[in-house]
Simulated assay, not measured.
Amino acid sequence: MNNRKLVDTLLRSPAFHRGVQKVHKQIHQLQHGKPPEHYGGTNLEEPGRNGGVKSFIALFWEELKSGHRPDSKNKK
């Protein structure tokens, strides 16, 4: 076989493509870190809440109330 046929055979091989994908994934993880899914993902909903717009508004309102209280220690 000449070189062209060897390259064509290699490029058609599913095993070669899986190997390239695996190396690409490892390099990407080294550069950018592991994705959140690797650590179990992100779960922003609490068990008692059913999510949706109502839940978002309630959480937003709680944050506004707790995060924007005037601090009496810093007043002059």
Rank of each mutant, 00 (worst) to 15 (best):
G51N: 11
R4L: 07
K5T: 07
H17W: 15
Q29C: 09
E45P: 06
L11H: 08
L6S: 06
R49M: 14
E63H: 05
L44R: 13
G40R: 00
Q21A: 09
I57S: 05
G52Q: 11
P36I: 00
L11K: 08
V23W: 04
L64C: 14
S66P: 01
G40T: 06
H68E: 15
V7H: 07
E62Y: 08
I27W: 03
D71M: 01
L11G: 01
P35K: 05
R69D: 04
K76N: 04
K34A: 12
R12A: 13
K25L: 04
P35E: 10
G41W: 09
F56P: 01
H68K: 07
E45R: 15
Q21C: 11
V53T: 15
G51V: 03
N50E: 15
R49T: 11
M1S: 09
N43E: 15
R4Q: 09
V23C: 00
N43P: 03
W61I: 15
F16S: 01
V7M: 15
Q31H: 07
G41Q: 14
F56N: 04
K65Q: 14
K73R: 15
P47M: 09
R18D: 03
L59R: 07
G48L: 11
G19F: 06
H38R: 02
F16N: 02
F16Y: 08
H24E: 07
E37Y: 12
L64Y: 11
N3G: 08
H38F: 15
L11S: 01
S55C: 01
I57T: 04
P14L: 00
R49L: 10
Q21D: 06
E46R: 15
Q26R: 08
N74G: 08
H28Y: 09
V20E: 11
V20F: 08
G52L: 05
H17E: 01
L6H: 09
E46W: 13
R12M: 13
P47A: 14
P36F: 02
N43S: 10
R18V: 02
R18I: 08
T42K: 12
F16D: 00
G41T: 07
H32Q: 10
E45H: 14
L44W: 11
E63M: 11
V23Y: 10
Q26T: 06
F56M: 02
L11N: 05
K76W: 03
H32W: 14
D8H: 12
I57Y: 11
H24L: 12
E63P: 02
V7Y: 10
G51H: 07
L30V: 03
H68D: 13
I27F: 09
Q31N: 10
N50V: 14
R12L: 14
Y39T: 03
L10V: 03
R69C: 12
H28K: 08
H28S: 12
K25M: 00
K75G: 04
P14N: 01
N43Y: 13
M1Y: 07
D71Q: 07
T42Q: 10
H38Y: 09
K34F: 05
S66I: 07
G48A: 12
N50T: 13
S13D: 15
S72F: 13
G52C: 09
R4F: 05
D71S: 06
V23R: 12
Y39V: 02
S13F: 00
K73M: 12
E62F: 02
K25G: 01
V20Y: 12
I27E: 01
K75Y: 10
G67Q: 04
L64I: 15
L11C: 07
W61L: 14
Q21K: 11
